[in-house]
């Protein structure tokens, strides 16, 4: 089998990063506040890349990703907190719950095109939030508290890297090309034998699964989750990351999630001004560079592609 140099290099880089941060955290060189933001960053990366799967690669406007995150967060947290079940099965069940809801919701609404789908997914996110507010078992509007802190650095890192790899593998396959063809031209794709419903629903549900995973990791780091955490604005946050990085670029989403998380952490104390700056930047990007930082391209280390060498 051929060796994929890009992959090997990126993975090595990732693990150096892992040990570096691990060391800095355990030596308490990184303060508690920045540590929290690093955790948040990795959760944001999962959310942004998985959302990109729907908005960027499949080309469907999805504005309710936080709803799936909430399903994963609440399902897993209810399992660990209310039922004393172990962490890893809870993450899995939380993700599967999001996946199943993704299929059930996606099947009817993904027939809608463009703006109608956008508004339907937005509505979905709001419905999830309001349902949680009305569910006393998970604390209603007050939120669910006393969630054990099970999310640790190795688990978070490994899961994030695994999800990025899985998304990449999905896109770079015949199934992924089917997904891209739907973005490009639905009618041409369908007459070329692509089952639109199957690929739309499957991609939407896979993205939901990962959002569920991110939600579970989130809940088990921050001790408490409230329905308000997963409101429309949260979905917008992830949308902005995906769009800023470039719809259709996994590396773009990673960069944008990183950049925006850092900026957001630095401006934490400025409240309204932070949001004003955020919105101005958002509009400016759309006006001057609507394709985002990376467009649909992926970052590659070109020195690794030797002339006449192996290509993926």
């Amino acid at each position: 089998m051929k060796i994929n140099r890009q992959l090997v290099f990126n993975l090595s880089l990732a693990f150096i990063l892992f040990f570096l941060i691990h060391f800095l955290m355990s030596a308490k060189i990184i303060s508690q506040y920045y540590q929290l933001n690093i955790y948040l960053l990795f959760i944001n990366i999962i959310m942004a890349t998985s959302l990109n799967l729907v908005n960027g690669f499949l080309g469907q406007l999805h504005l309710g990703h936080a709803g799936f995150m909430a399903i994963g967060a609440y399902t897993s947290a209810a399992m660990t907190t209310n039922m004393d079940l172990p962490f890893l099965p809870s993450i899995l069940v939380g993700s599967i719950a999001a996946f199943v809801v993704g299929v059930l919701v996606g099947y009817p609404i993904l027939r809608l095109g463009g703006d109608y789908l956008a508004i339907a997914t937005l509505g979905f996110g709001e419905i999830v939030r309001i349902m949680i507010v009305n569910t006393e078992y998970v604390g209603g509007a007050r939120g669910l508290s006393g969630i054990p802190r099970y999310t640790n650095w190795p688990i978070l890192f490994l899961i994030t890297v695994a999800i990025i790899l899985l998304i990449r593998n999905y896109i770079n396959s015949s199934h992924g090309r089917a997904v891209l063809s739907i973005r490009e031209d639905e009618i041409a794709a369908e007459t070329m034998g692509i089952n639109l419903t199957k690929y739309k629903v499957m991609t939407f549900a896979i993205a939901a699964f990962f959002a569920g995973t991110a939600g579970a990791l989130y809940a088990h780091y921050f001790f408490i989750i409230t329905p308000a955490t997963f409101n429309f604005l949260k979905s917008v946050d992830y949308l902005v990351m995906a769009v800023l990085g470039g719809l259709g670029s996994i590396t773009g989403s990673i960069f944008a999630a990183t950049g925006l998380t850092i900026i957001s952490a630095l401006l934490q104390d400025f409240g309204a001004v932070r949001m004003i700056a955020y919105s101005v930047v958002l509009v400016a990007i759309m006006l001057f560079r609507p394709s985002g930082l990376m467009g649909t391209k992926e970052m590659k280390f070109s020195f690794l592609d030797k002339k006449g060498g192996n290509k993926e």
């Binding site: 090309r177 891209l180 063809s181 041409a188």
Partner: peptide, 8 residues
Amino acid sequence: NIRLFKDL
């Protein structure tokens, strides 16, 4: 009216 997958 040619319907290729233009950006692929």
